[in-house]
Nucleic acid binder design. Structure first.
Lengths: 333, 333
DNA sequence: CTGTTAGCGCATTCAT
DNA sequence: ATGAATGCGCTAACAG
């Protein structure tokens, strides 16, 4: 009544353990007849390989890790991560690789500590790294540790680490062009964490697209900061007629701010969200948004990680084509 | 330049492997002097235990699993899970137990398949089970497999499985009492998945509190269904003046519906959300909500799971005291 | 084609 | 107090 082992199968089938191992792993060196018999016995016994034993022997955990390092107040309402994870697991599932998740506060030291432990104990074979910052202090450590990883981020030239990115520029162009076409000239943007690399890229893309003096107010992806930034913009001397937000959460909060100030959306203010999670359909009017295939993105990143773990040298990649989904929150200037 | 093992430490310190093992694990049978020397050497060498070896030897994965089985459209915007996970890991971190996460579509068979694999391969030592349904088909399987688990749910009498729940009745009473005090008499409720056990409990609590003929419209936690239910209610012959929602997402969408219908919140409609995630502060007015310590709840459930894994018989428990946080979305009838 | 054997790194029992 | 020996379940190199 205990877990059957290869040894049990061997005894039951009247062959040697190694024969069983070969048969089970589809390796040559076993006659088709014996292989079938072994498989049958394994099936009857309900045998499943022991992960621990396999991991020890193969020196492979068959697990990849993901650390989420944001204050939970930010994490829990940010749909991006669950969507990413869903995609990651789709790619991992085929090889039956597990995903070890760790959410740590906002402490980069803590995050590095997790990587050191995970890799030191070979608890994971590699990790996916999100929220890459400018001059990210994690990157050199990761490189030095030799922990296989893929940056879920645009490329980071000096790092020597593989990245899988999204086309930020194209997305920004789509958003701004849409607003321009509606006649907007005073277009502003409320950005995410100022020291995320992605934010800097969007800053640049926005400046190149909306003009160098287009206003950007820095926020941090949270509803609070997003709302505050929106208030600042709308109560300023020259309020914008359209605002592009760096995520859905801040864009949703902007609808609230408009209501609070008695402004009509999109009559007085057009709003563009970024990511296009189901959050965009919560407010009225529903939000026009930059839409990207986040699950697909996660799957691509996970696929790249598997190859990196496998020892391949994987080139940086850019995933997918952003699209603008027009809903009620944008209208003529 | 490769990973040091206990053997290396033993050689370096001039003792036997077992002595090193004893010293490292704080077991008696080693002189204090040797212990110190061994610890010093281990530190110099940067030794870390191999998880795979330890797991094989101890027949313990030191990992617990969590399967999330909802359509991703629902998962990604539901803050509950990330908050729960944050709490779970807080409890797991102390013992350095990992959390293996698996998101599967909406397929209960698929979920059971995951449990069978995880347990068959001893990839996890136990699991946390969420979204418990009425006559949940997973429960007997879990019990039969002998996979240690804790239901993140109110108790399920016949199941033989340990549960950690929240005080649903108290929460409902708080919500309804608040609305009653404001003079509301036509109070309705928009519920989550009809076949979740929690929904049934809330149905009953609502009927007991708001009166047996208080209207309940069944939805599924999604913004779409929540909005549709709200529309149904508000466009009916006797529209309610207050609605209690089973989660934050549907409550936020209700603000949108009110705006769409030209109704004032809370002037024409009072809204109570359930969970009190940061989502509640996104709309204007901000949402009054039933607040529960979800991270704490997750930690409690994880703690119970650890004890179950340890072989203890853990009694069902109810965690924490729900509170009503009053914000702008509720007002006099 | 099949069986024997020796690790993987750690825990632990049993002698010394 | 310390060291030698064995097993966890699987893989793989080797000999038969």
């Amino acid at each position: 009544m205990k877990r059957p082992t290869i040894h049990d199968i061997a005894r039951e089938a009247g062959v040697a353990k190694s024969t069983v191992s070969f048969a089970l792993n589809g390796l040559p060196g076993v006659s088709e007849a014996t292989r079938q018999r072994i498989l049958a016995v394994a099936g009857e016994l309900g045998w499943q390989p022991s992960r621990a034993a396999r991991a020890l022997s193969a020196a492979q955990a068959e697990v990849v890790g993901l650390v989420l390092a944001r204050p939970t107040g930010l994490l829990e309402v940010e749909p991006f991560f669950m969507r990413l994870i869903a995609g990651v697991e789709a790619a991992l599932g085929a090889d039956d690789i597990g995903l070890l998740l760790q959410v740590v506060g906002d402490d980069p030291q803590h995050e590095l500590e997790v990587y050191r432990r995970w890799w030191g104990q070979r608890r994971v074979d590699g990790v996916l790294v999100v929220d890459v910052r400018v001059d990210d202090q994690r990157l050199p450590v990761l490189a030095e540790l030799g922990l296989p990883c893929v940056l879920v981020s645009s490329e980071v030239p000096g790092s020597g680490l593989t990245s899988v990115g999204l086309d930020t520029k194209a997305a920004m162009v789509a958003a701004v062009a849409h607003l321009r076409a509606l006649g907007h000239t005073r277009i502003a943007r409320v950005s995410g964490h100022a020291d995320f690399q992605e934010t800097v890229l969007r800053d640049r893309a926005f400046a190149e697209t909306a003009g160098p003096d287009a206003v950007i107010v820095a926020a941090d992806y949270s509803g609070e900061r997003g709302a505050a930034a929106t208030r600042d913009l709308l109560l300023s001397g020259q309020p914008p007629t359209a605002i592009v937000y760096d995520n859905d959460v801040m864009a949703v909060s902007a609808v609230g701010v408009a209501a609070e100030l008695g402004l009509d959306v999109p009559g007085d203010l057009s709003i563009v969200a970024w990511d296009d999670s189901p959050l965009c359909r919560l407010p009225h009017p529903a939000l026009t948004a930059i839409s990207r295939d986040i699950p697909g993105y996660g799957a691509a990143a996970a696929g790249a990680l598997l190859r990196v773990i496998h020892g391949e040298r994987v080139p940086d990649a850019v995933f997918g084509i952003p699209e603008l989904v027009v809903r009620g929150s944008t209208g003529p200037a």
